[in-house]
Structures are given as structure tokens and as C-alpha cells.
Amino acid sequence: MTIYESDLPGVGKKFEVELEDGKRLVIVTHNTGKREVFLKPNADADGDKLFDLSDRLARTVGTILEGAYFQPVQTEQVETMLGDETYLEWYGVTDESDFAGQRLAEANIRERTGVSIVAIQRDDELISPPTPETVIEVGDTLVVIGDREDCAEFEELLGDGYVGE
């Protein structure tokens, strides 16, 4: 996927996102915060306006698309980059996981990998922040924060299809 960015003097910025079928999604961000979204059938064609959003609504829709409101867990692993080196990732706990049935304090995840479990999604309940006494249960989704290397170490520690695989 390629994204083209260009300045629109006096207006704001334009981003064109190449889609798999050759079409382009065009997002114009005005200096006022307003966003306009267009769809172009190809790079050289004019775009058809799909919709526009206020700054506040665009930010809300963006967080929904990013996964902050609802994170589907059908995928094996989900990650969100929070900064240059910080990731937020979701891992599902299976019945084969070594951590299933352990308290966070017993699992020693932070000491062993460097990541922190910042939340646990359990059915319709969000445990945030979990305490050292919180028990990791089969079916939980662990929300983990750490740098790329620590997340990779966490994933390796949980390897063999235990979590996130």
C-alpha cells in the first residue's frame, strides 16, 4: 500500500491511498480540521466525493477504525503502534497457555519479557488495570504494551500456539 501526501496551500493536506484494485482513496484535511473523502477509479481520474466529516467526528471515526473502541479478536494478533517504539497488542489466551489459571504476579510477565499487561478483556468485562492478584483465564484477551523487541519476546515465550497464534 502506497500513500501519497501533498500540501494544498491555503487549504491543508491531501493524502491519496492506493487501494488493491487500482482505485485511490483521497482524504483532504483542511486547516479548519474538516475532512473530505473522495474515491478515484484510478490515479489520473477525478474523484467522487463520498462524505465529509468535522474534525471531532473524523477523530472518533479514526479511533474506531484503528480499533480503540472495539478490537476484533478473530485475527491471530493485533497491534497498534502508539509511538515510534511503543506497541499495543492483543493476545487471546487458549487452554494450552502456560499462563492460564495463574495470577499476574505468578506469571512474572513483565520481569520475563519487559511488556506490561495493561488490560484484560474477559467476555463483556474490561479489567483495567489488572492487579497482581488478577488471574489469567482461558478466553481472556490480554492487552499488552511494550517495545517491538519486548513484544516479540512475549510472543516467543508464549509460542507453540499458546497465545496470539
Rank of each mutant, 00 (worst) to 15 (best):
V73N: 01
Y4G: 04
L142V: 09
P132W: 05
F15Q: 12
L158Y: 01
D140T: 04
P132T: 04
G139E: 13
Q102F: 13
L8K: 12
E156C: 00
E16A: 13
E125F: 02
G33Y: 05
L126R: 15
T94Y: 04
G83E: 07
Q71C: 06
T29S: 11
D147P: 05
M1L: 10
L8G: 10
F99M: 09
E165T: 07
I109K: 08
G10I: 10
V115I: 15
D98R: 14
G22C: 07
W90N: 01
D55R: 12
D95H: 11
V11E: 09
D48A: 14
I136A: 02
G67A: 12
L158F: 03
T2R: 14
S6M: 10
P129S: 09
D123S: 12
T94N: 12
I109R: 08
V115C: 14
D124G: 02
E133L: 06
Q74Y: 13
E79F: 12
E149K: 14
S116F: 05
I117L: 09
G47H: 03
T86D: 08
V28Y: 07
N42V: 02
Q71G: 05
E18S: 13
E106C: 02
E153K: 13
S116L: 11
T134N: 05
I120H: 01
G114M: 09
G83P: 02
T141D: 10
D46L: 10
P9W: 09
V78F: 13
Y4N: 05
T113P: 05
P9R: 12
T131N: 08
V163T: 12
T141H: 15
D46V: 01
E36S: 14
E165A: 11
R122Q: 07
M1E: 06
V144M: 10
L25S: 03
V135W: 03
Q121Y: 09
Q74N: 14
N108A: 15
I3W: 08
P129L: 10
E133Q: 14
V28H: 10
S97R: 08
G10S: 10
E89W: 01
G139K: 11
N31P: 00
Y4M: 03
F154D: 01
F154M: 15
R24K: 15
E79M: 08
T63Y: 11
D55P: 00
V135F: 04
D48N: 11
